[in-house]
């Protein structure tokens, strides 16, 4: 459904962030994009909806070449791609409802959105989504009055209100505590399943990725170095992606029971290794 072909991004400073990436995401597939900081994960995501303009290569969404679109057509195409951000990227001084409704901006005209007169069907759908993410009570609170997890749920509702075909998710849990991180990841994956959405999720946390996704793509210095199931992430593979390090913790946590937050044996093992 989404296909990225030989995508290259070079910044004006000369740094090559992406060096010819090829990626195919079938409909309904939730995949994780992992890699060290600066590997180009964020750039790849932003090249898909052209928040960052790619230098060369193509991005096709449901057959349409996004890289060739003019400004108006690009805006229409962006409606089909919901984006969820690392630091939530909510407009902090607007209410929760206004933030969620901003997901409809691609569908309504300027004056309608200026006077906050969204079509009743949009408002109804926004309420339904807020019910789904359990925030309907807070709809008139200001976004900066919410906790981190709540803000990210607003961000998710905003992206879904676009009625997208695919979600582009940029480090959704980087600013959250471990428990909330899992809840948010679970919510995103459930929603993708309910609505048959594909998703590309940028992640730092390999263990968390193993719990939730069916496919992992590893990026290193702007090139794909791994593409396969999470089980294939052997220490050797992780070393190719991130460089040499002790991977036992990441692997063990990934294989452990989903509900367990603590892994005492790992700590013992590490302490033992130190002596």
């Amino acid at each position: 459904m989404l296909s990225v072909e030989r995508l290259v991004k070079r910044y004006p400073t000369g740094d090559a962030a992406l060096r010819g990436v090829d990626l195919e995401v079938p409909a309904g597939q939730v995949m994780a994009l992992i890699g060290p900081s600066g590997a180009g994960k964020s750039t790849l995501l932003r090249c898909v909806n052209r928040l960052v303009e790619p230098t060369a290569g193509r991005v096709r969404l449901e057959g349409e070449d996004l890289t060739a679109l003019g400004a108006a057509a690009l805006r229409r195409a962006r409606r089909r791609m919901g984006m969820i951000f690392q630091e939530f990227a909510l407009v902090e001084r607007l209410s929760v409802m206004e933030n969620v409704l901003s997901g409809r901006l691609g569908y309504v005209g300027f004056w309608r959105s200026w006077f906050r007169r969204f079509p009743p069907a949009d408002v109804e759908e926004a309420f339904r989504l807020l019910d789904r993410v359990e925030l309907a009570e807070s709809c008139d609170k200001r976004a900066d009055a919410l906790s981190g997890g709540q803000r990210q749920r607003v961000g998710i509702a905003r992206a879904l209100l676009q009625n997208p075909r695919i979600l582009l998710v940029d480090e959704p849990t980087a600013s959250l505590d471990p428990k909330t991180s899992r809840q948010i990841m679970r919510l995103i994956c459930e929603l993708c399943r309910e609505r048959g959405l594909a998703a590309i999720i940028n992640m730092h946390d390999v263990a968390l990725a193993r719990l939730f996704v069916e496919r992992v793509v590893g990026l290193r210095q702007g090139a794909i170095v791994y593409d396969g199931p999470p089980d294939g992430l052997t220490p050797e593979v992780l070393t190719t992606i991130y460089g040499a390090e002790d991977w036992s913790e990441a692997r063990r946590r990934g294989g452990a029971d989903e509900e367990e937050e603590e892994e005492p044996e790992v700590d013992e093992q590490r302490l033992a290794g130190l002596t």
Binding site: P120, A121, V123, E124, E125
Partner: peptide, 15 residues
């Protein structure tokens, strides 16, 4: 949006 008219909840920005 099925039966939106009947169940529609109204929303106006808080003053």
């Amino acid at each position: 949006m099925t039966g939106a008219a009947a169940a529609a909840r109204r929303w106006a920005p808080p003053p």
